[in-house]
Simulated assay, not measured.
Amino acid sequence: MSSRFAAPSVGAVLVDKGFPRITRTTLALYAGASGDHNPMHIDIDFAKKAGFPDVFSQGMLVMAMLGQALTDGVRPDRLRSFSTRFVAITELGAKIRCQGTVAELLEAEGEKRARLTLTAKNEAGDVKLSGEAVISL
């Protein structure tokens, strides 16, 4: 076990991962893999008719990024819960950075745990997705 998990403190960053820019190809590949073919995410004319300047990311794509960042930073067998809330649309071209910070140390079911505050933000620091996870230490 990594020393950062041996005795983390409140405020410690345990998850930190950046992702490449979201491109039209990213959206098309995710649509094919997920089955989410909502034209809002792949058809610029449809998005413009709906009042948006361009297509935008599927929310579940950003959630997948946050989940990947979480399991890259924390072994999956230590994950006790993971929940998210969509905060804002993620625009085409966004470069997402996901972080998880220790918000609370606790004990439950006989094990030491940490509650992490999770965020997925764009380069400007705008939160696109927020959430939390509980992990076993």
Rank of each mutant, 00 (worst) to 15 (best):
S3Q: 15
S3E: 15
S3T: 14
F5S: 12
A6C: 09
A7M: 11
P8R: 10
S9N: 14
V10S: 10
G11H: 06
G11D: 08
A12M: 09
V13S: 08
L14R: 04
V15Y: 04
V15G: 03
K17I: 11
K17P: 04
G18L: 11
G18C: 13
F19K: 06
R21Y: 07
I22C: 03
I22V: 13
R24G: 08
T26K: 01
Y30S: 00
Y30F: 04
Y30L: 01
A31R: 00
G32H: 01
G32S: 02
G35T: 01
G35M: 03
D36L: 00
H37N: 02
N38C: 02
N38F: 00
P39C: 07
I42P: 00
I44L: 13
I44K: 13
I44Y: 08
D45E: 15
A47S: 09
K48H: 09
A50I: 05
G51E: 05
P53C: 03
V55H: 01
V55R: 00
V55T: 08
Q58D: 03
A64H: 05
L66E: 05
L66D: 02
G67Q: 05
G67Y: 04
Q68V: 10
A69H: 03
A69Q: 07
A69P: 01
D72H: 12
G73H: 07
G73A: 10
V74C: 12
V74R: 06
V74G: 07
R75N: 13
R75Y: 10
P76L: 12
D77F: 11
L79F: 10
L79N: 10
R80F: 05
S81F: 06
S81G: 11
S83D: 14
S83E: 15
T84G: 07
V87M: 13
I89Q: 11
T90M: 03
T90L: 02
E91Q: 14
L92S: 06
L92M: 13
C98R: 01
Q99M: 12
Q99A: 08
G100V: 00
G100D: 02
T101V: 15
V102I: 06
V102S: 03
E104H: 10
E104V: 05
L105F: 07
L105G: 03
E107L: 03
A108I: 04
A108S: 13
A108P: 02
E109D: 15
E109M: 06
E109P: 00
G110Y: 03
E111P: 02
R113A: 12
R113N: 12
A114H: 09
A114P: 09
A114N: 08
A114V: 11
L116K: 09
T117E: 15
A120D: 08
N122M: 10
N122E: 12
N122Y: 08
N122A: 10
A124W: 06
A124G: 13
A124S: 15
D126E: 15
V127H: 10
K128V: 10
S130P: 06
S130E: 15
G131K: 04
G131V: 09
E132T: 10
E132P: 03
I135Q: 03
L137C: 11
L137R: 09
L137M: 14
